[in-house]
Simulated assay, not measured.
Amino acid sequence: MHIVILGAGQAATSMAARLRTKGHTGPITVVGAESVAPYQRPPLSKAYLLGEMGLDRLVLRGDSWWADHGVDLRLSETVTSIDRDNKTVTTTHGQIAYDTLALTLGATPRRLPASLGGSLPGVYTIRDLADVQAMASVIRPGMNMIVIGGGYIGLEGAAVARKLGLDVTLLESAPRILGRVAAPQTADMIRDLHRAHGTVIREGVQIARITGTDRATGVELADGSRLPADIIVTGIGITPETALAKAADLTIQNGIATNEYGVTSDPAIWAAGDCASFPWQGARHRLESVGNAIDMAEAVADNILGANKPYLAKPWFWSDQFDAKLQIAGLCTGYDQIVTRPGDAAHGGSVWYYRDSKLIAVDALNDARAYMIGKRLIESGKSPDPDLIPTTPDLKALL
């Protein structure tokens, strides 16, 4: 059985490795558009941009691993179409026949429209190695940077820029940062952290356009005011990469729709990672995280080989900003009660989310113990009395 994996990131690497570990001896082909072997993305905008980590430490597997495990890694090759009837994919280098196809295509960053200046030189996104290398080649201490977007991507970019000595203003159009992904209490902790490090955060501001003709020179706000900038970074979210799947007439629902085993609407095609949505806990979810890319890819690999086990997600996330680490367990969607617990660090503490008296998520800033206890409680289905969260001296007692 020839298994072809489209996309060469974390999910593809995890899937290929799992297939070999579980005993698949047939050919495996991994096709990626980038010119470098699969690498970690989270450190790009942090340790790599700061010069603390080189490309040699970013790569997920050394060059010899692919050859030693008989995986045909095809780089700088873009897939243009999928022929489901003939079970072939067409690439810029020709055609590849498959018995089983896996889509681990990831996601692409949202960009400001060209009509608003989003395509001007000097406007950057943070998603892949080329993005970060392009930005690293121009940033210098003392520059003015404007970050558009107050989600985790924008906040992490702002933190690194401050550490590199840039003057940073972050603009968020919603009433507060992290509006879609975290409670106000978590946003308050992160905002305080940034302001303590000199980041200017402006919330509830609308952007009219990016100024400049040959190059971005700043941002004009809806009220007519202008903010000068030497460099502009947009962190306004990502969208699942579904174009190939849609053109092949696969079902699309907030990503490439799969069933609980990772199979798409075509039984010969599977999907995993940022591009895939799946049923879980009575709803359809798509998780954008390294943890999900690994776990779902491995589950799909097992099922390709006949395990026939539903993928049961265990969501966890993290965000490094300055010298602080925010760790997140669970999904806070639909919470109706919040409990906070102070931490020992100057910038720290935890936020506990409940829905219908059930613990569903925990945000922990510089509080690894709260994160680990919360994660274990959520995964075991235990929900301590909310009143005990701030008053229990040792959180381990809640287990």
Rank of each mutant, 00 (worst) to 15 (best):
L244A: 10
A183E: 00
Q40K: 14
A299L: 07
V132D: 04
I360V: 13
V181L: 06
R111I: 06
I338D: 05
G7A: 07
A271I: 05
L359V: 01
A276I: 08
P184W: 06
D56N: 14
G381R: 07
T88Q: 13
V138A: 12
G273W: 07
N144M: 07
H285M: 04
G51C: 12
P384E: 06
V31G: 07
M53A: 05
T242M: 06
S119F: 00
T251Q: 13
F317Y: 14
I236N: 07
I328G: 01
S137H: 08
A370E: 02
T242I: 14
L49T: 08
A370N: 05
E220D: 08
A247Q: 15
D223E: 12
R195C: 11
A114C: 03
I338L: 13
V31S: 07
I238V: 15
I146E: 06
A196Y: 00
A107P: 04
G23R: 08
Q206G: 11
Y371D: 01
A276M: 11
Y124D: 04
A158H: 04
G262F: 07
G32K: 03
Q253T: 09
T169K: 13
M189G: 02
G273N: 07
I82M: 09
A248Q: 05
N254M: 11
D56H: 13
P267E: 04
V362W: 04
